[in-house]
Amino acid sequence: MTWTWFHRLGSPPYVYALAARLTPWFAWPAALLIIGGLWGGLVLAPPDYQQGDGFRIIYVHAPSAWMSLMVYTTMAVAAAVGLIWRIKVAHAVAASCAPIGASFTFAALVTGALWGEPMWGTYWEWDPRLTSELILLFLYLGYMGLRAGLEDTQRADRASAVLAVVGVVNVPIIHYSVTWWNSLHQAPSVMRLAKPTMAASMLVPLLLMLLGFTLFFGAVLLVRLRGEVLNRERSASWIREIVNA
């Protein structure tokens, strides 16, 4: 009976209630960590010896970029689970992930461009990371476009799941090829984004932000998941009971 939890996770009313109960456990720590991380990053950490205060945007840029990939992976795993075991809730999770991931990707692109201005003197540089991030945004947009294009929810779920799995196989290939491409054309004077070493006073707030963003994603995912489940189960009797109660 070790699989009971797995089966219960396939039941929409259970997941709906569970998501409601779990949300504050993600939301509050996320808020605290992000506030702490921002305080540490924007106030406590010393200015960078090369970039001055400009480097502080890393406290938003790096976690966003990290999340954009993590959300895509989460989405693909959920989609694969839904595809293989035909669990509808897993598809609902994948569908809820996409707009969040696209927003993180967009945030990473915007902060990257803003950071580029002081660093490179231009808002857009065909840097391998920014280019990969842009392609990732297109992958998200394609996923959401496919879902929007297919009217039948079941078909949309399953077709977009195939796309997510194909996408996750491709992400490393794309990243590798873009890095390879950039190494051919790059002028050697361009600074790298990541520093090999970082002072602890700079690093700790960054780690806080990373953890905070991850929990924030969890909280938003749970809220979106409840909406998604409500929408999918709108004609089910358990929803009528909740509404009437």
């Binding site: 297109f138 947009l141 496919l146 194909v166 090829s177």
Partner: peptide, 10 residues
């Protein structure tokens, strides 16, 4: 095109 082009970039 939106689905295929990003995957074709490599």
């Amino acid at each position: 095109s939106l689905l295929t082009l990003p995957l074709s970039l490599p």
